[in-house]
Design a protein around this nucleic acid. Structure first.
Length: 695
DNA sequence: GAGTTTGAAACT
DNA sequence: CAGTTTCAAACTC
């Protein structure tokens, strides 16, 4: 079983460091931030691949909840986050009822706020309360009440169209009752309640009241299933209604790339606290995690010692209205296996990540292990690796392309996550994505595309990915060597002409090995070769310099010339002509500029003509066709076309005779063509007028 | 499109 | 680190 290695653990806090950490640091009482006892051994490594719940919450406040049974105990490790999970109803069997009905040891009175809530069809809602008040009554363990205060909600699920929805409550609701600071890992009972409409939506509510920062304690939770009615409210309407009951506001945030939507919830009382900025950082970056296609379970990642929990929401192929018993005797404090619960489609979540540079701006304050602010000068590269590979590659992690993300390892069995340079992300079908997010920043306006702001080879990744990339033609390298531009640029081969290509997700293990080999040879192999100078683009230069001998550095063989930069002192080229005063270079530049201008003019002319034709057709077609006459283009007979060509040829000859520049000649020809079209259309209109019936 | 040239990457 | 080989892109015809 793959686990999250300590190396990964050492990375993730920095990777996942987000506004929430700061927010919680500021908002939570000091005792909640107290570090666990130093003597406490590092929690066991966490299984990543097997027997993990289908939906796992990302609970930054060290929450790790798993639904394991619908009618029996569910287990939770260090729960301190509330989560709502929505799932398609197709996974739920049974009959819909309009009354709340329990199928387990339900304590319905524990749901005063939501017991009357109806859930829209096709959705399942799981609420995992964050650090709720302890079951102080002692009578019914987990008899927690979903209170407006001291709770934090994270909602993730699918809309009716299969698009993910996420909700989050701000930290102002996260005020865990605690006994932390005593070093006692004693945890309070946690309860999970599932409210289901059999065959329709399901609501699961869990409340955990365990210690923040503790990952060693696990207490039994009660899992309860209720059935509620369904009405015709849309999901959003329902959510608004639901959270108004909780004194929240709800807003939706569509995601551009995937069409997914997010719902952010903020308390009406203190909406300003829904977004915390750190050191002036108002935006977040996101870590993208792509789930494995198999097994179709939600996978939970718990990083020992980390305040954050990572989850993957993956496809569930079978429905089950009830969570399965994972065995309440499981005392593994890190993670408990659970059976699939819901989710019939991949869900995209986002993990906002504060750039490392931004983190440096955080004013230092006494930190605990529960809330660490990592100061680093590294570029904001993000990486999670399968434990089996991480120890090998981890030393070179920082050399990977910016924005490295997770990818499913199709070809590597249960290997789990794989190194995925940032540009790869844009190449992967959106349906394959699951990105993690911290609840605290759901309400931010920063889209997941923030990642594209990272640089790549002197270009932003947005630029790099927007520009058309030439397909490679590799035949022998399997596209796993730096010979392959795709591989070297951190991209998957896509629509390439390569042979025996391994640069894809289907050969993840091979690709990983290749990446490792490249990094072994050159730790900065994936770093941009063209660095930016202090004064901007003009100071760009090749990090290694070229080594040209015959090209004079004035051909694209030369990496400097290809990058449109001049050679520098670090180049080892011979006969270099790629310097500022070089007349050869100036000549080439002028020629290149002229060619570029010409191309632009041609493109503009074509665009304009196309627009004119389209416009003319649009304006004239209704008038002509409304009366049942012929369409204008029907008048473009062979004779008309020939006449038009004659006109254009004539115009060409005139341009040549008058020695017009090519650009002018092209313009004149295009204008003549426009006149021809107008005449044709004009004639068509007249013909229709003259002969409205028979023409 | 085939063949050649070129220089970076890979290898020894 | 230097020399050689491999490789794929750039270039030429």
């Amino acid at each position: 079983m793959d686990v999250v290695s300590p190396e990964l653990n050492s990375l993730l806090p920095d990777e996942i460091m987000d506004t929430e950490a700061i927010a919680m640091e500021e908002e939570l009482p000091a005792e909640h931030l107290a570090a666990p006892p130093q003597s406490e051994p590092e929690p066991p490594q966490v299984p990543m691949e097997t027997e993990v719940p289908e939906i796992v919450s990302l609970c930054p406040a060290t929450t790790s909840m798993q639904m394991t049974s619908a009618s029996t105990d569910a287990q939770c490790s260090t729960s301190s986050g509330t989560q709502l999970l929505l799932a398609p109803s197709g996974l739920i069997t049974g009959t819909t009822t309009t009354s709340v009905k329990t199928t387990g040891p339900v304590v319905t009175q524990n749901l005063p706020k939501i017991s009357s809530v109806t859930v829209p069809a096709n959705h399942q809602l799981i609420i995992n309360k964050v650090a709720s008040a302890p079951a102080a009554d002692g009578k019914s363990p987990g008899a927690a009440v979903l209170k407006p205060e001291g709770q934090k909600l994270l909602v993730a699920g699918l809309s009716k169209t299969g698009q993910p929805i996420m909700l989050a409550l701000p930290h102002t609701w996260n005020k865990p009752a605690t006994t932390q600071g005593t070093g006692d890992a004693k945890a309070l009972p946690t309860q999970i309640k599932m409210v289901t409409t059999v065959g329709k939506p399901v609501i699961a509510v869990s409340s955990a009241s365990q210690l923040m920062g503790s990952s060693t304690t696990l207490q039994a939770q009660q899992l309860k299933t209720l059935q509620v009615g369904v009405n015709n409210l849309s999901l959003k309407e329902w959510l608004i209604s639901f959270f108004r009951k909780l004194d929240c506001t709800v807003s939706t945030v569509p995601q551009n790339t995937s069409g997914n939507s997010k719902v952010a919830i903020s308390p009406l009382k203190s909406p300003s606290k829904t977004l915390k900025t750190v050191g002036g950082v108002g935006t977040s970056q996101f870590k993208t995690i792509i789930p494995l296609t198999t097994p179709p379970n939600v996978q939970q990642i718990q990083v020992p010692g980390s305040r954050f929990h990572y989850v993957r929401l993956v496809t569930a192929t079978t429905g089950s209205t009830t969570a399965q018993s994972g065995g309440s005797t499981n005392t593994n404090p890190s993670i408990q296996p659970a059976k699939p619960v819901m989710m019939n489609a991949a869900v995209r979540m986002s993990v906002p990540i504060i750039p490392a540079q931004s983190i440096k701006q955080v004013v230092p304050k006494p930190l605990t292990s529960a809330a660490q602010v990592v100061t680093t000068s590294q570029t904001p590269q993000r990486l999670i690796m399968p434990a089996t590979h991480l120890p090998q590659i981890q030393p070179n992690l920082t050399s990977l392309p910016p924005g490295t993300v997770l990818a499913p390892a199709h070809g590597s069995g249960n290997m789990g996550y794989a190194v995925l340079p940032a540009p790869y992300v844009t190449q992967i079908p959106q349906s394959a994505f699951v990105t993690l997010t911290s609840s605290s920043t759901f309400s931010t306006a920063t889209p997941i595309q923030t990642q594209a702001r990272l640089s790549l080879n002197g270009l932003s990744t947005s630029e790099a990915t927007s520009r058309p990339r030439k397909p490679c033609n590799c035949t022998r390298s399997q596209c796993l060597k730096l010979y392959c531009d795709c591989f070297a640029n951190g991209e998957f081969c896509n629509n390439c002409n390569c042979v025996n290509c391994f640069n894809n997700l289907d050969h993840e293990s091979e690709r990983l090995k290749a990446i490792k080999a490249c990094l072994d040879r050159n730790p900065v192999a994936f770093k941009p070769k063209i660095g930016k100078g202090k004064q901007g683009e003009s100071d760009r230069r090749h990090s290694k310099g070229c080594n040209c001998k015959k090209s004079g550095c004035l051909k694209n063989y030369c990496e400097c010339y290809e990058a449109k930069i001049m050679c520098s002192s670090i180049c080892k080229c011979m006969g270099c002509k790629n310097f500022e005063e070089s007349p050869e270079r100036k000549t080439l530049m002028h020629l290149a500029d002229a060619a570029e201008v010409r191309v632009q003019q041609q493109t503009a002319a074509k665009t304009k003509l196309s627009s004119q034709i389209s416009d003319l057709l649009t304006r004239t077609t209704p008038a002509v066709t409304s009366g049942g006459g012929k369409l204008p283009y029907t008048f473009v007979t062979k004779e008309v076309a020939e006449a038009t060509c004659d006109c254009l040829l004539e115009q060409t000859e005139q341009a040549e005779l008058t020695n017009q520049p090519q650009a002018v000649a092209e313009r004149l020809i295009l204008e003549e063509f426009g006149r021809c079209l107008r005449r044709i259309i004009s004639f068509a209109g007249k013909a229709k007028t003259d002969c409205p019936i028979n023409c």
